[in-house]
Amino acid sequence: MISVEEAKKIIEQNIPERKTRILPLKEAFGHTTAEDIYSKYDIPNFSQSSMDGYAIRFEDKDLKLKVSGEMQAGSTEQFHLEKGNACRIFTGAPLPIGADTIVMQEKALIENGYLTVQDNDFEKGLHVRNAGSDAKKNTVAISSGSYLSAAAIGYLAGIGCTEVKVFAAPSVSLILTGNELVQPGENLNFGQVYESNSYQLESVLKQCGIKTIERFWVKRRSFRS
């Protein structure tokens, strides 16, 4: 008998070099990255609002601010926010030039076209997602050896990634031993038990993304003294 650690060392020493392949992002779920993935851009590539509300200059927070202008998500035109003004803004919209903080609409009192901030916890930069806050240009977004979960796939799509280099899934052989074992569904005779380990192991392997799985039965020889 050998220990689990010894068995792991033997396996590691005899594993061939892992094969890699390039997959479209839509087909990469469940695989493992074979190289570092870099972001080509700052994501987001502009500072944006994370709330529906009003963009203001933080230094103006104690003033009555004239509401002038509006920024919607997808806007490609820049808007310059003058001192003493506020700009209506929606979630995902670019921050106006000069603005640095968002007043969420539930914390904004609007009277006769003027805004008063009603937020006791108001602070500079509130509800602003700065450029590059999700990923910085030319930096590692996901490291080599990372499992591509549903969240990771969504994240890579969000930084504009279309394909990834992954390790090819291994093929696994299960070697079953034990003369007392019979397959579920067969008649169970005296001294026999149903073989169940391979079903559990195969399910775990499939859960890990391994699809090529074979089973081999090995009969034990009788030993006589």
Rank of each mutant, 00 (worst) to 15 (best):
V193P: 08
V218H: 07
Q200R: 06
K211T: 15
L65H: 04
G113S: 11
F122H: 09
S50H: 03
Q200H: 12
E214K: 12
A152C: 04
T33L: 08
I110M: 08
Y147S: 10
A55F: 00
D52N: 15
R18Q: 13
G145S: 05
F90Q: 10
K9Q: 14
D52E: 08
D42N: 13
N197T: 04
E35N: 07
F46Y: 15
N179C: 02
G132R: 03
V172L: 02
H127Q: 11
T101Q: 02
Q200K: 09
F223A: 02
T33F: 02
A86M: 03
E214Q: 10
A152D: 04
K9W: 07
I15R: 10
Q200T: 05
F216G: 11
V172N: 07
V172G: 02
I37A: 00
K66H: 07
Y41G: 00
E6P: 00
K61D: 06
I10F: 06
E123T: 06
Q118D: 12
V218W: 10
Y147A: 12
Q13F: 07
G154L: 07
P24W: 07
C161G: 00
F46W: 05
K26E: 15
Q183P: 02
P44A: 07
D100A: 01
V140A: 01
A150P: 08
K8M: 15
S49N: 03
S144Q: 12
K136Y: 04
D121F: 11
D100F: 05
D119R: 09
F90L: 08
M51S: 15
E82I: 06
Y147N: 08
I22W: 13
A157Y: 14
G132M: 00
K107E: 13
F122L: 10
E12R: 15
Q118H: 10
I102L: 08
Y199P: 00
T139A: 03
Y147F: 11
I210A: 10
G53M: 04
R18W: 09
D121V: 00
E27Q: 06
E82A: 14
A28H: 01
Q48I: 13
R220F: 03
R221E: 09
R220T: 14
L65I: 04
E70V: 11
F58S: 02
Q192S: 08
N112H: 12
F216R: 15
E70D: 05
Q105A: 11
Y54L: 01
D62E: 15
I10T: 06
V172H: 06
V103F: 09
V164Y: 01
K211D: 14
E111C: 10
Q118P: 01
Q78D: 15
T32K: 09
V182I: 13
F167T: 05
